[in-house]
Design a protein around this nucleic acid. Sequence first.
DNA 1: ACCTGAACACCGTTCAAGT
DNA 2: ACCTGAACACCGTTCAAGT
Lengths: 192, 192
Amino acid sequence: MEISLEVIVREAIAILNREGLEKLSMRALAGALGVKAPALYWHIKNKQDLIDQIAETMSAEMLTSCGLGNAQKYLFEFAHVYRQKLLEVRDGVAVFLNSYPSTPARCETIKNVMISLLHIGVKEKYCLIASGMFNNYVLSFVADEVIFKANPAGMPAFINTILGTDYEKISFDEQFDCGLNVLFAGFKILAQ
Amino acid sequence: MEISLEVIVREAIAILNREGLEKLSMRALAGALGVKAPALYWHIKNKQDLIDQIAETMSAEMLTSCGLGNAQKYLFEFAHVYRQKLLEVRDGVAVFLNSYPSTPARCETIKNVMISLLHIGVKEKYCLIASGMFNNYVLSFVADEVIFKANPAGMPAFINTILGTDYEKISFDEQFDCGLNVLFAGFKILAQ
DNA sequence: ACCTGAACACCGTTCAAGT
DNA sequence: ACCTGAACACCGTTCAAGT
């Protein structure tokens, strides 16, 4: 049947988009490829490896679509590309949360973030915590965004008792940029 | 055998601490309680409900150990209690990430955060995004902290190529406060 | 080199039946 | 009211055996 790592990962992402992470089983993936489950283990180590490879493929696609400007602008743009990719692949956030960065493209994205943070003045000793905050902000934001969009009426009721009647809603795009600006403003205290 | 919701949740947390989330199955939980798996379904709706109840119990324990000071101090203290509780219960972060806030004590904690944020000057329209950032910061920080502590040598190798040889490590306690200060500094731009 | 059959050791959940 | 037996429809992974 001619299977390869690339074909496996591509089909895995297709299943993700069609049915979500909980339907992505080794048997289902093999079935979609016209093969039996044990065949996959010739090409990948195990399911964790599959998840890692999905995150790697997504990371590689983020890398190519990011230009180089000044550091602050780069971080801003990368955050947008990151979010876009996480929204594009169903359960993309869960994939990233369940995969520790070890593959090349994924590491490259983190490296770019760290270098950019140093460029905007973040001291070396605060570099790790800042890049963690940046990465986790994007992941968490999209996680919440996806949950809300799947069930807009599902927000805990008490929230409406806190927010006044004149509460003005802001779009997800605005909220996302808003949070980024909070982070960048906060990072200034890491510059000395 | 006299089972109840409280006993079930307490034993579930005990299993979490002994063996971790992936070993917490309905069969294992029932077995530890001297009962068969289907018996659990008389007391809880399903496994999701169990996870929600664990998060609720943990949230209730956070509530009692938090005093009332000024808003900024409260947020700082609550962040510490939150982190401590997440570190105390094995896989506590995963429990929270896999449970949407709907139970009373859990909602109460979020409500307290939102009200405190309003008190320190965050405008109502930015209240949701700010409380999301606060909550996600604590969860993500502890998630990374736990991973690192479980495997201190497992950091991606490229990181050492970025950080100079004079890189000074800072403790997790310091890193945590550092990130909190970044957030509070950043939140100032949400005050007008 | 690459794939299958068969098996192992599990899951969450339902539901008729017991007490 | 509360629990069990038995079953359904799944999992990830291994490994001897096939081609």
